[in-house]
Structures are given as structure tokens and as C-alpha cells.
Design a protein around this nucleic acid. Structure first.
Length: 483
RNA sequence: GGCGCGUUCGUCUAGCGGCCUAGGACGCCGCCCUCUCAAGGCGGAGACCACGGGUUCAAAUCCCGUACGCGCCA
């Protein structure tokens, strides 16, 4: 058995786009597992897809993970800089190692060059389908005579390197989540390990690196389960001790289809831009495909580390539920002390030109249990600072002809108030109602509408106090005498 | 097409042979609190545990099929 200190997990994304929700969840589980065992979490960039990999994607992935607060112990710091004893962490910087192992397999007869063209391969596939055989490579280049090989080389034909699969027996994938999963070797094909460009394929490079980086647990998406027996054969051929595997169920959209743009945001950074609180998203993601025996919902960071386990991982796919995420976000924001909340909402406040406004903290505190997103903060309090209110239809109706006179009188009374604070305001206004035999609602609602332009908002008297005498009187005056 | 994986309220899930007339959470509905909106409290609707066979005194839980969904190979 490995001792806890030897636990090493990794997240190995391909930089071919933004980091999506599913990838983030995989990264998160690897991180949690490593932390739970006091191990190490490695980030490795699998950029061997020469045409689709971009530097922007690397940046997006690093930024997404940082924003989510998923900290890697080893891996790239920036595009240029790595940190950790197994550097580099970009596969394209590790080509020598793949080539060396490929050569070894070639020399030992475990791999062979294949000169088949795209056309030949397609023909092979077509024929197989016609004969209702699995459409796999038929191994024709396995027994290519040396002279034939030289002939191809002379003709300038490019070769890929294929791994020679055993023809018989079965390969068992011991999976921590799914148990032992068996695959017939005869059904596995001689897959390409090195492309014609002398760059390794995913299935080869990741074996070499997981071994080189001493990864103890490969926790990854379910879509890799079918590739695992092929990888296991590479481990065997090279005499490597394979890591433990755990294949996570996929994340689906709310309708049960594969999560895609159609369902709304799929990129982590989109959630940031919409105003989600990173710890809330992280908490929500942890619950997609994992649960405790108590079905606990909200976790502190340390608590997540402590309670996370592979045993709690779900076999069946999980649907992403935006409504629950939104609830959870509100749950986190409500717990946040106001200064921290404002700090987190800073980008949104800045955009609304509210950052640094006087009394912001006081005003923000009045609405604190209502924010579901950080972007709600400016939305819910901008009326405090606006000169021209955005009147809602409902609010307009409330300050109609029926209540103008009353509001005018009330304004006169309020302007005489010594202390413009909640308690005296409440006493005065309630007294005003009593003196005129008005129901409080007949006064409170039009008053709220008149000073805020809306019918929803903070507690009336706190709101009046926060607005201050000048603004309240001014707004009442404007409401009573619209131009 | 072959192989593989999966299937408990709309959704996330608890459950690992008797405690289940299936528990929690989100969402939905109602009531309470209340100056509005929220938040909070209380309650409700909502799952014949995909279907069909077994095994067993007893199955959501074990076994075998079927269906459906998904993945991989191309």
C-alpha cells in the first residue's frame, strides 16, 4: 500500500478551449483527493494537439483554476514558467522522453511503423463495416518486410508508430468507482502512439507522464474508461507500475443531454463574469457526482478536504442544475461580511460606477440577504446614488394623484425632523398615519416608491436614513411635482 | 456495428438484504413572520426505486435478461 504522503493526483487538460464545467469538476476532485490524503496535486498541460492547442487556452485554464481557488502544487505558473520537481509540465516540452520510450518499444518489437495512408485506412474501415466487423486497424503493417519498409521510406512515405496489442487474453481495469472492468484484448486495436509528425498521441503521452511524474491516482472523466485498457498495455510493455484509476461520471445539462452551450454557460470564466462567487461554484461542483452519507450541501474548504472520498463518488451521470447553483451562491453571499462582499463585488461595482461611493457599505448591508450573485450588488443599490430614478410601472402607479398630496404633507413633516435616523423616522411616519387615520400601508408603499422608484427594497426607515434628509426631501418633492 | 458504463422524486442525492408505508437538498405550492421584496420558520405536492424474470422467510439493495441513455473505437 502506498503511504498517504505518496498520493499524487493530476489534472491534465488539453489547451484547446476554455476550461468548462466538467473539466473544473475533474480538477476539483483530483485536488480534493490529494488534499484529503495530504498528497500532491499536479497540473499538466497536454498540448500535443498541434493544431488546436493555443496559448490563450492555457491562460484561460490557469485563470479559471485560480479563480475557483483550486491550487496546484506542481505545474505551470505561466506559459513560460513551471514550478515543481518534475518540470516541464507542458507535454510539448517533453517530446524527448516520449520519443525515447517509443524507440524502446520499437526496438523491442512492441511497436511498429505503419505507412498506411488515410485513404487506405478509410477503405479498411468501410470494408469492415460492410462485413459487420468492428472498424479497426487490421494490423497489416505489423509484418512489413524490411525491404518494403525501405521502399516506403525511399518514396518519402510518412510513418506513424503503432503499438502492438496482444491478440489474446483480456485486460482488466481496476477502477476505484466502478470495480473491475474487463476488456477483450482481441477487440483492442494497434493504436497509434506516435504521429507522423513524431509527436505522441494522447494515450501514449499520458502514460509516460503519469509514470514519470509518479502519479498514484488517475481521476478523470468517464470518457477515458474505454481507453484505459490500451494504456494499461503500454504500462505493461514498458514495465511501469500503473496508477490507480477512478473514472468519474459525466456532467449532463438540465435536460439530460450532454452539457453544452445550449444549456447556458459552460465555461468557468463565464460564471465569474456573471457574478458567481467562486467558492459557491466550487461547492456546487463538488456535489456533482459526489455526496456524503448525510447528503450534506454546504461545506467549508477544510471540511471538503476532510470529507471528500472516492467512495462517495457516483457512478451515474449528474445533471447540472443552474437553479441550485444560484441558491448556493446566495447562501455563500449571505454569510459574507459586508466588506468582503463589497470586495468580491468590486468589478461589478466599478462597472456600475458605484465603487468608492460614500456610505456604500451601509447601503449594501441593507440588502444583504437578497444578493444571489455578486452582480446583484450594484443592481440592488444603484437607486441610492442615482439622480434620475428608473421608475417601475408599479411604483409610478403608487405615487399617482391619489397620494401626491399626502406625500407632500409628509415631506413637510419629515423636513422638520431633528434626527433623520430610523427610529425617529418610524415614529414620525407612524404618527402621521395615526393622525390621518391612514393605514400604514397607504403611506409606506407610496413613500417607498417615491424615494426609490420601486416597490421592493430594504426596510423603509433604514432606507430613508441611509438616503439622508436631503435626498429624501428632494425625491419626495420631485415625485409630488413632476416638473 | 462492436465493446464498455449507467438507470432512486423535475434536478442533486441518501440507501450498500429486514430500521424504507424510501430520508435530505434545490425548485414548486401553501401558511406564518412582516412596511415591500427577500431571508427565516412551518407544512404540502412530488419516486409503484427503468422494465421483466429469478435468489431469499424478506430486495431499491444480490443474480440474469430487456429497454433506454451515454461513452470509446472509426
Amino acid at each position: 500500500m502506498t503511504t498517504p504522503s505518496q498520493i499524487r493526483t493530476r489534472f491534465a487538460p488539453s489547451p484547446t478551449g476554455y476550461l468548462h464545467i466538467g473539466g473544473a469538476r475533474t480538477a476539483l476532485f483530483n485536488w480534493l483527493f490529494a488534499r484529503h490524503h495530504g498528497g500532491t496535486f499536479v497540473l499538466r498541460i497536454e498540448d500535443t494537439d498541434e493544431v488546436r492547442s493555443t496559448h490563450d487556452s492555457v491562460d484561460a485554464i490557469l485563470n479559471s483554476l485560480r479563480w475557483l481557488g483550486i491550487h496546484w502544487d506542481e505545474g505551470p505558473e505561466t506559459l513560460e514558467k513551471d514550478r515543481g520537481p518534475y518540470a516541464p509540465y507542458f507535454q510539448m516540452k517533453r517530446l524527448d522522453s516520449y520519443r525515447a520510450f517509443a524507440r524502446k518499444l520499437l526496438e523491442e518489437g512492441r511497436a511498429y511503423p505503419c505507412y498506411c495512408t488515410k485513404e487506405e485506412l478509410e477503405e479498411m474501415r468501410r470494408l469492415a463495416q460492410l462485413e459487420k466487423r468492428p472498424p479497426r486497424y487490421d494490423g497489416r503493417c505489423r509484418k512489413l518486410a524490411d525491404e518494403k519498409r525501405r521502399e516506403f521510406e525511399a518514396a518519402g512515405k510518412k510513418a506513424v508508430l503503432r503499438f502492438r496489442m496482444p491478440d489474446e487474453g483480456a485486460t482488466t481495469v481496476p477502477d476505484l468507482i466502478r470495480g473491475n472492468v474487463q476488456f477483450e484484448n482481441a477487440l483492442l486495436q494497434d493504436f497509434v502512439i506516435m504521429k507522423a509528425s513524431n509527436v505522441p498521441t494522447y494515450n501514449f503521452a499520458c502514460v509516460i507522464d503519469d509514470h514519470a511524474m509518479e502519479i498514484s491516482h488517475v481521476i478523470r472523466g468517464d470518457e477515458h474508461l474505454s481507453n484505459t485498457p490500451s494504456q494499461l498495455q503500454i504500462y505493461k510493455a514498458l514495465g511501469f507500475e500503473p496508477p490507480a484509476f477512478a473514472h468519474l461520471s459525466m456532467i449532463l445539462g438540465p435536460d439530460g443531454a450532454k452539457l453544452s452551450k445550449r444549456h447556458g454557460a459552460t465555461s468557468v470564466l463565464e460564471y465569474r463574469d456573471q457574478g458567481y462567487y467562486p467558492k459557491a461554484l466550487r461547492n456546487y461542483l463538488a456535489l456533482l457526482g459526489w455526496a456524503t452519507a448525510e447528503s450534506q450541501e454546504l461545506f467549508g474548504e477544510e471540511e471538503l478536504f476532510r470529507k471528500f472520498s472516492i467512495e462517495g463518488c457516483q457512478k451515474s451521470p449528474a445533471s447540472f442544475d443552474p437553479a441550485k447553483l444560484l441558491w448556493m451562491d446566495g447562501e455563500y453571499l449571505r454569510k459574507l461580511p459586508t466588506p468582503e462582499l463589497l470586495d468580491a463585488a468590486k468589478p461589478f461595482l466599478e462597472k456600475a460606477e458605484l465603487w468608492g461611493k460614500p456610505g456604500l457599505e451601509k447601503v449594501a448591508a441593507l440588502e444583504r440577504e437578497k444578493y444571489k450573485l455578486l452582480s446583484d450588488v450594484p443592481k440592488l443599490l444603484d437607486f441610492f446614488y442615482k439622480d434620475d430614478l428608473d421608475w417601475t410601472e408599479k411604483a409610478k402607479r403608487l405615487v399617482g394623484d391619489g397620494s401626491r398630496g399626502m406625500l407632500g404633507d409628509l415631506a413637510a413633516e419629515l423636513s422638520k425632523l431633528d434626527s433623520f435616523t430610523a427610529k425617529p423616522l418610524e415614529d414620525t411616519i407612524r404618527g402621521f398615519c395615526a393622525a390621518r387615520s391612514l393605514k400604514t400601508s397607504q403611506v409606506f408603499h407610496p413613500l417607498r416608491a417615491a424615494v426609490s422608484g420601486r416597490t421592493e427594497g430594504p426596510s423603509l426607515f433604514d432606507m430613508l436614513e441611509a438616503l439622508g434628509r436631503e435626498k429624501v426631501i428632494e425625491r419626495l418633492r420631485k415625485a409630488v411635482h413632476p416638473n
